[in-house]
Amino acid sequence: MATVITSAALSPADVSGSSIGQAAAAGLVCLGRAGIDAADVDVLINVGVYRDLNIVEPSIAALISKRIGINLDYLHWPDQRAGFSFDLMNGACGMLNAVQAADALLSTGSARRVMVVSADTHPSMDRSRAGTDEFPYASTGAALLLEHTDDDRGFGRVHHRSLPGRHGVNGYLPLREAGPTGRNTIVIDRDDDVLDRMLDLAVDAVLATLAAQNSGTDDTGPVALDRTLLITSQPSPGFAAELAKRLGLAPGFAAQLAKRLGLPADGAVTVDGVHGDPHTSALVHGYKQAQETDQLTGHDRVLFVAVGAGLTSAAAFYRLADDGTRR
């Protein structure tokens, strides 16, 4: 039994700059694709970091659940099935932490379906302030529906690594300096060398994940990267391509390999059409783009890799269906 993506969705482009609205919109599309109702979601996890008005209470997940219609009021709920929601935050790695949390909930029978949503926004909810030098993150959202199934698909173990020292990225609200403008203020400090350090950590994370798979400490068996599609966080537009290059999946390498195997040349997904770093939604953006552009075809697995502030990384293989079709 493994945790499987049974539905994935992105927030529609015309949604407002509200992270709650974007995550809820993505969640509703995700439910529609899966053909299920809000009542069928047992747990909703929100992994978005930058939120409307810098709200810290309640969980943003509870506000998103209300928009989606999940467990509005247990006392007036027809089947007395309770829903639960909470925020899980770890920057760009949060989505994979949530996969790990969802796997624990699914494997212990605590939930049959877990929805993971993400969205980031400038706290002012002004879309023109997103994807800028001051606030590099895109105003966008995404949703994944996760379940356990008996087939061969699904996530392997999520592997984590962290680097001591400088955090690389610091996102915070300086309360004293902001004064009464705290609902519209956010500061993102990025070290000049952060992308290089993130790349180094990402390479380490991939090699460690690969080593764990090949040494049999993971239960999904040995795997090689040559039939693996890399879907990464996108701290810069060229991040995925650069990581692929360092891993020997560069266009030149991939093209040679692809020629021999009769496969498409691109070994890594670079998210297109998003203004800024899709941050906590990056992995779902990459996955959806790969689905829609048929980039999954010919690959046995996806390797999801996220690196973020800390620095921390998370990586996990995702075994695809044999016939190359995915939902």
Binding site: S59, M89, N90, N170, P174
Partner: peptide
């Protein structure tokens, strides 16, 4: 400073020397 990233869990883990621990924040 009201911090959004890195995770507080990361900073606690680094301070106490939980070097191999996975880390994330929960907010509820």
């Amino acid at each position: 400073r009201l911090q959004f990233e890195p995770s507080f869990a990361h900073r606690v883990a680094e301070e106490i020397g939980a070097r191999d621990a996975a880390r994330f924040d929960v907010s509820n």
